[in-house]
């Protein structure tokens, strides 16, 4: 029983960043822009959050205060949104290949934090540990970070926004048939900018969760593929909030299981670590259900 409870909480913790990122990707892809840069946005967000909190702590002399982690979260969201803006400008304004642009951001996310870390901490792979972490809230027999709760509450909210509001209808129209949406008076370009920036903000929050919620420092490449798995969850979840919830719970469970098995007698850790990625490939191959992307996804829009 203890193992089941531990596995349950571990699943929630592992699924939360995937869920946040995946819901962000949902906006972007529903608007017609492929966002393979989610991985990089998580890393930028994580670095921004950890570094901001650390700088505040240094400036205030190691003070523990309620507001400090929230400023870090804000910084993570902001930087994530800025990176989203870069991706949006490249893909929308300059009609760049969306995958190439996303790849550029992912590569930058491996290098850029290291340069800043080198200047601040004279080391290229980790930031200093922070004291002010995002608060945990009690949940039944255990506790989880507040962002885990937020992530799961976002699911019905995103569903409501996408399927019950005019804005959501417009967003979906833009991703399915931008020309038709434009003739109905929807500003396609603005919708896409909003959606891509929003996906950056959510991925940045996921990053902040990793660096100042789940852990207490930034580590180079700490997302370890979460952005890509979130993308797979999006496909598996058929670009629907509740589908995404199910998919991220499945991936989160796989990761939680991997952690539980580590150090045990059952399977070597190196093999267990590869399991979520193998699962992702099986999902993508359609062994576990087919899905259809938004019709206009990946195509630059020409007026």
């Amino acid at each position: 029983m203890e193992i089941v409870i531990a596995l349950f909480f571990s699943t929630l913790r592992q699924a939360a960043p995937l869920l946040l990122t995946s819901l962000g990707g949902l906006f972007s892809e529903r608007s017609g822009v492929v966002n393979i840069a989610l991985e990089g946005m998580i890393l930028f967000g994580a670095a921004a959050a950890a570094i901001t909190v650390n700088r505040i702590e240094v400036a205030t002399g190691g003070q523990v205060a309620f507001w400090i982690p929230w400023v870090g979260l804000l910084a993570g969201a902001l930087v994530g949104g800025l990176v989203g803006l870069v991706h949006a400008i490249a893909c929308i304004r300059y009609r760049a290949d969306q995958i190439v642009s996303g790849t550029a951001i992912n590569i930058a996310a491996l290098g850029a934090p290291s340069i800043v870390l080198q200047v601040l901490y004279n080391n290229t792979s980790t930031s200093q540990e922070v004291v002010n972490r995002l608060p945990n809230v009690p949940l039944g027999p255990g506790s989880v970070s507040i962002l885990v709760i937020v992530a799961f509450l976002l699911v019905p909210l995103v569903w409501w926004v996408l399927f019950k509001t005019p804005w959501g209808l417009r967003l979906r129209a833009v991703g399915e048939h931008p020309e038709a949406a434009e003739t109905m008076g929807v500003n396609v370009i603005r919708m896409r900018y909003t959606a891509v920036i929003l996906s950056g903000v959510l991925a940045g929050i996921a990053g902040a969760y990793l660096s100042i919620g789940f852990l207490n420092q930034f580590i180079r490449a700490m997302s370890a593929g979460a952005g890509f798995i979130a993308l797979a969850a999006l496909i598996f979840g058929k670009w629907h909030p509740f589908g995404v919830l199910g998919a991220t719970l499945l991936f989160g469970f796989a990761q939680a299981l991997a952690i539980q098995l580590q150090g045990g007698d059952i399977l070597p850790a190196t093999i267990v670590q590869a399991m979520p990625f193998i699962l992702t490939m099986l999902v993508l191959a359609g062994f576990i259900g087919r899905s259809r992307p938004p019709a206009a996804v990946g195509k630059p829009y020409d007026k």
Binding site: Y94, A96, V100, A104, I107, A108, L110, G111, A112, I115
Partner: peptide, 18 residues
């Protein structure tokens, strides 16, 4: 940090993409 080269590469990819 020599990671600056990685950043330069990323920038080149991005600028060629646009």
């Amino acid at each position: 940090s020599n990671q600056i080269i990685q950043v330069l590469q990323a920038l080149i990819i991005l600028f060629i993409a646009v």
